[in-house]
Design a protein around this nucleic acid. Structure first.
Lengths: 189, 189
DNA sequence: TATGACATGTAATCTGTTACATGATTAG
DNA sequence: CTAATCATGTAACAGATTACATGTCATA
C-alpha cells in the first residue's frame, strides 16, 4: 500500500527534519522564502501536518514555555526520516522531469542534510542520466515539429529544450562542486 | 465574478482555437507531445470540457460522418476566444513567476495564433520586466542566505537563480527574433 | 471472432483554495 | 484598551487522480 505522500508532505518533512517547528513557523517559511511554490495557507498546512502525524511520520508536542499560548512543535520520527530517505533515493524518472524541476530540486536540496553527501551525489547522477535522455527526446520532437509551429510556439518550445540543456549543464557543475569538496575534506583529514 | 478558469481549461481552449477537436484528440495531444504536464486522463479532460461548455467558452457538436461511432468535436466560441485573449494579455506578475514558467510559456506559445504577433511581443516585454525584478530578488535572497545552507541546498538555490537568469536571456533572444521577423515582413511588402 | 484502438463517461477519493472563526499575547 | 501579531483550526467547494464501466469499429 506504499503510503502515498504528496509533494507538500515531503516539503514539510524536509523542513522539520533538521529543525522541529510549529505549523505557524512552516507557514512563514513558505511565505517568506523562495519556497513560495507551496501554499502558506492554514487550510493546506494544518491538515497536511495532521495527516503526516496520523501516518506516524511526525509527532507534535505541545510546548508549554513562558506563556500559555498553545503552540505545537512537530518533529520527524524515525519512520518519517526513513520515508524521506526513500523519497530522496528514488531514481529520477522521465515522469519526474515531465512534472517539472521543482520537486526534483526540493529532493536535492534536502538530500545532503537528510541522507548525506553520498546520497546527494547519487541523486545528481541519476538526474544527469535522466536529463540526457529527456533532452534528446525533446530535441527529436523539436526537429520533427518546429516547422509547423507559429513563431511564438517555436520559441516557447526552444525555451523548454534549452532550459533542459542548461539544467543538464548544471548537474555537471554540481557534481564537480562535490568532487572538489570531497578532495578538500580528504586531504584535510 | 470574473469566471475562474484553471490552467487545464486554458490549455484546452488554446488547442481548440485553431483546430476543433474531440476530447479523445486532446487526450492524445497531451500524452504524445511535450504537453505531458497536463493529464491525459478522461477523468480530467471530459469534465473540464463540460465546464468550458457550460461557461459558453466552447461548443461541442456531435459528428455524424461515415460511421456512427459518436464523436463530439468542440470549437471555441467568440466568448472563449475573448477569454483566451484576456488571459494572454494579462501582465506577468511575480506570482506568475513563482508558480513556475510552464503556464507562462503556454500563454506565450498560444499568443501569436490567438492574438497576433503584436500581442506576443507585448507578453514578452511584460515577462522580461517581471523576470528582471524576480532575478534581482532571488539574487538578494541568495546573498543573504547561502552561507547557512548545506552544499546541496546552495546548489539547488543556484540552479533556480541561474535558471531565471537564463530565462531572462531567452526573452531577449525571443524579442530579437520578432524584430527580425517584422523587418523582413516590412521590407518584403 | 477476438484483440486492440477509438471514444466517452462516472464515482470515490484526495488535496488544495478560499473564507471564515477563535482565542492568546504583546506593543503602542 | 485596542490593534496587530501569534497560533490554530474548520467548512464549503473545486479540481485532479485513479479506477472502473460502456460500447463502436477495424483488422488479423
Amino acid at each position: 500500500m506504499a503510503l502515498k505522500i504528496p509533494s507538500l508532505g515531503y516539503a514539510l518533512l524536509g523542513l522539520l527534519q533538521p529543525k522541529p517547528s510549529s505549523g505557524y513557523d512552516l507557514r512563514k517559511t513558505f511565505s517568506s522564502t523562495s519556497m513560495k511554490t507551496y501554499s502558506d495557507s492554514p487550510g493546506a498546512i494544518y491538515p497536511a501536518l495532521r495527516r503526516l502525524e496520523q501516518d506516524g511520520l511526525i509527532r507534535g508536542t505541545i510546548e508549554d514555555g513562558a506563556g500559555l499560548r498553545r503552540r505545537q512543535v512537530f518533529h520527524v520520527t524515525a519512520r518519517g526520516l526513513a520515508e524521506l530517505k526513500k523519497w530522496i533515493a528514488r531514481p529520477i524518472t522521465s515522469d519526474d522531469l515531465t512534472r517539472g524541476y521543482e520537486e526534483i530540486m526540493l529532493r536535492f536540496a534536502f538530500s545532503e542534510t537528510v541522507a548525506g553527501a553520498a546520497a546527494a551525489v547519487q541523486l545528481l547522477m541519476s538526474l544527469q542520466a535522466a536529463l540526457k535522455a529527456h533532452v534528446a527526446s525533446l530535441q527529436k520532437e523539436y526537429e520533427s515539429s518546429h516547422k509547423m509551429m507559429p513563431t511564438s510556439g517555436r520559441l516557447a518550445f526552444e525555451s523548454g529544450v534549452r532550459g533542459a540543456e542548461y539544467f543538464l549543464q548544471w548537474t555537471q557543475y554540481a557534481l564537480q562542486t562535490y568532487e572538489k569538496e570531497t578532495r578538500k575534506k580528504g586531504s584535510a583529514s
